[in-house]
């Protein structure tokens, strides 16, 4: 039996996208974090969602937990948030995807729903542990809206390259 190359490419890609999020946030910080907008780059989720939809990846759930753990370790210093949220998103997406056929628009909608859920849960956890005191209205206007817009743009740019990549190597 041929060993799938995805076994090596998937973890590499996971970490690439994980740290790409941080680098892009740093590079575009003047336009990402202003008084009226606050964009959360979630390209890691795009990688995972497209991996679910178009790739045959072993241990995807485990890799998403590892990626979440590294997110917590390296970016926030508060363990346990993304370590649980990312596998949860993968689990959710897997279940949603079984009901639909996979086209550009459908996957886009699934991705946007995922972003909404993830961003909202992340806000909720941070409000719970006292890292933010922003109201729900501020959250929707300042964070959720711009985050959806940015990740939508990321999806449009990266959809075709990633789809071809996943279909070729698995």
């Amino acid at each position: 039996m041929r060993i799938s190359k995805m076994r090596y490419f998937f973890p590499i890609g996971t970490f690439l996208f994980l740290f790409l999020d941080g680098s892009l946030s740093h590079l575009f910080a003047p336009s990402f974090f202003t008084s009226s907008t606050s964009v959360e780059s979630r390209l890691i989720l795009l990688w995972l969602v497209l991996g679910i939809c178009y790739g045959k990846v072993d241990h995807l759930l485990a890799w998403s937990a590892v990626a979440g753990l590294f997110f917590d370790l390296f970016y926030t210093g508060v363990l346990g948030i993304f370590t649980l949220l990312l596998p949860f998103m993968v689990y959710l997406t897997r279940n949603i995807v079984t009901f639909f056929n996979r086209s550009f628009i459908v996957v886009l909608l699934i991705y946007l729903i995922d972003i909404t859920i993830l961003t909202t849960l992340f806000y909720w956890v941070n409000a719970l542990i006292g890292f933010t005191s922003a109201s729900a209205v501020t959250f929707i206007a300042r964070t959720l809206g711009p985050t959806l817009a940015y990740n939508l743009a990321g999806y449009v740019i990266l959809y075709w390259p990633l789809k071809i990549f996943f279909e070729k190597f698995s």
């Binding site: 941080g22 946030s25 959360e40 970016y75 992340f122 806000y123 941070n126 890292f131 933010t132």
Partner: peptide, 15 residues
């Protein structure tokens, strides 16, 4: 040198 920034609205953190 600043390496990266936490991609989050709630933690204003850089590494």
């Amino acid at each position: 040198v600043v390496l990266s920034r936490t991609p989050s609205s709630w933690q204003d953190q850089v590494v």
